[in-house]
């Protein structure tokens, strides 16, 4: 376990082979995206004369710039709200013993199961009535509510494993609940906050159906919807389509690579319950 033996070597080789199998779709995606449009060769053959032309064309034709800005705005705002409300909510839900607190916890957990298809249409009419339709705010509001159960689930799992001694000390020192929470508890939950940020950012960035309905007709789009209509237009031109797809997923992939360490840490905290 602690030394690199010949067995470890075999495992290493084996894992690299498995990784190759997993990498196959990525290989196809990139290989075609850097290929010249008129290259009729097999998609399996590596592209030796790469070009960035497809990326330029895709960028110009799919108007991805505006969509990326929209997606960024929606993702950042939603995640901020989600983290803020879910972290705060998890505190009393874990630390309070009252019946009301337990009930509230389970009511929120039921949300993990609800298929949002039921809520989609009635909510649409409400969003329209409060005048948010066609704005990115409607999406922020939607995601903030939709992702509460999952985020509270992660936060409460993590918080249960945190010993309460530090907070008790603060209580004894006469700090109020808000101070205790934001000064002491929230910083201690940093790993799981990382997980909550990444998983929600991925979800919000990738969601397709909601922006399709809520932004439709407003002229603004998010990345998945922009990609969908872009692919519809350029169907058989795979190099340019794949270049567009890569542009669309690049921002979220970059965020993931930057924050990847905390994903594992956050989960591991939550599993100590």
């Amino acid at each position: 376990m602690t030394r690199y033996t010949w067995r470890t070597g075999i495992l290493e080789v084996l894992m690299l082979v498995v990784a190759l199998v997993f990498a196959f779709p990525f290989y196809i995606l990139i290989n075609l995206a850097i290929r010249k449009e008129n290259d009729q060769g097999s998609p399996l053959v590596p592209t030796f004369a790469p070009t960035i032309e497809n990326f330029v064309n895709a960028w110009n034709q799919a108007s991805l710039g505006g969509a990326i800005v929209n997606s960024l705005m929606v993702s950042v705002l939603s995640v901020v709200v989600i983290v803020f409300v879910s972290a705060m909510a998890s505190y009393p839900l874990v630390r309070l013993t009252s019946r009301l607190s337990k009930t509230a916890y389970w009511v929120i957990m039921v949300g993990l199961l609800l298929p949002f298809q039921v809520a989609l249409i009635p909510l649409y009419t409400t969003i329209r009535d409060i005048g948010l339709l066609g704005t990115t705010w409607s999406l922020v509001l939607f995601y903030a509510g939709l992702q509460v159960p999952f985020s509270v689930f992660l936060y409460t799992g993590f918080l249960r494993a945190l010993p309460a001694e530090y907070e008790e000390a603060a209580w004894v020192d006469g700090a109020g609940p808000l101070t205790t929470f934001w000064r002491i508890v929230f910083p201690m939950m940093r790993p799981v906050t990382g997980t909550v940020i990444i998983l929600n950012a991925i979800f919000v960035w990738n969601d397709f159906l909601t922006p399709l309905l809520y932004l439709s007709g407003s002229g603004s789009q998010t990345i998945p919807v922009a990609l969908f209509s872009f692919v519809g237009e350029y169907q058989s031109n795979w190099p340019i389509v794949f270049a567009g797809l890569i542009i669309g997923i690049a921002p979220i992939l970059i965020v993931y690579f930057l924050l990847q360490k905390t994903v594992i840490q956050g989960f591991s905290g939550g599993l100590k319950g």
């Binding site: 409300v85 705060m88 909510a89 839900l93 630390r95 309070l96």
Partner: peptide, 8 residues
């Protein structure tokens, strides 16, 4: 403190 859960 249960009020903390109200926004969510």
């Amino acid at each position: 403190v249960l009020l903390f859960a109200v926004p969510a």
